[in-house]
């Protein structure tokens, strides 16, 4: 199995490196290729099983878009060929159509996903999210300047939290095997059951996750804590 991590030193704002670390521990046989911002991505000339891209600053979004634009057709082909992608935080915006800022500026994405975003740099949205992936409860944090309108399939069915936008029933976007979520940080560590599911979709035969007992214990405590906060906020 070959996993390519795109621009890990520049696109790792919120401890998202934890996802890569956890994948490495769970997939000791896999080859992990870390591509620097000024290197040609490995996927351009080679087959890969999973491509990971984490969140980045707004200026970095432009740089990443510019680096990936020459390979747009190749990326489209990979998405259409069911290659796995995992995009976290605002990485999805690079693959989307555009981000319109409140100040009038427009960031044009690669246009590979049918999503449009609105950005307000003076309104940061921090919130706890809970949703479902099939029958699995997924929890995580959103911390972003944008809200998104999507014509793509949703990734997580929203139970509470912002999701793509307040009115949306979903968080994240799924297109074939491209999984894009606004959840930030080590979502794979935070969500062991989802990670197991993802690994099974990747056809990895793994009965027990790395540090499964501890990770599930932390997950259960977190779900309980999130629900407590959600109940409190609803009551107030």
């Amino acid at each position: 199995m070959i996993i390519e991590i795109l621009y890990p030193s520049s696109c790792n704002l919120f401890g998202d490196r934890g996802n890569v670390l956890y994948l490495k521990r769970n997939l000791p046989e896999a080859a992990f290729i870390e591509t620097g911002l000024n290197d040609e991505p490995y996927f351009v000339k080679n087959e890969v099983d999973l491509i990971y891209l984490g969140p980045m600053s707004e200026a970095m979004q432009m740089k990443v878009r510019d680096r990936l634009t020459p390979f747009k057709e190749r990326i489209k082909h990979l998405i259409d060929s069911d290659v796995f992608f995992l995009l976290t935080g605002n990485a999805v915006e690079v693959f989307g159509k555009e981000v319109v800022d409140k100040d009038g500026s427009v960031f044009k994405g690669l246009g590979l996903l049918d999503i449009n975003c609105q950005r307000d740099m003076f309104k940061r949205k921090n919130n706890l999210f809970k949703g479902k992936f099939e029958d699995i409860a997924v929890v995580g944090f959103q911390s972003q300047f944008t809200v998104t309108e999507s014509r793509e399939k949703g990734l997580f069915k929203k139970i509470y939290g912002l999701g793509l936008n307040l009115l949306s029933n979903y968080e994240g976007v799924r297109k074939n095997n491209l999984f894009a979520t606004y959840l930030i940080g080590p979502i794979l560590v935070l969500n062991p059951y989802f990670t197991k599911k993802l690994l099974s979709l990747l056809k990895v035969d793994k009965e027990t996750l790395y540090l499964e007992d501890e990770v599930i214990k932390a997950y259960r405590m977190r779900v309980e804590d999130f629900d407590r906060v959600a109940r409190k906020q609803r009551l107030s």
Partner: peptide
């Protein structure tokens, strides 16, 4: 007030 964000510990 909330449930603490733990992402930072991976940094």
């Amino acid at each position: 007030k909330s449930s603490e964000l733990i992402s930072w510990i991976y940094d």
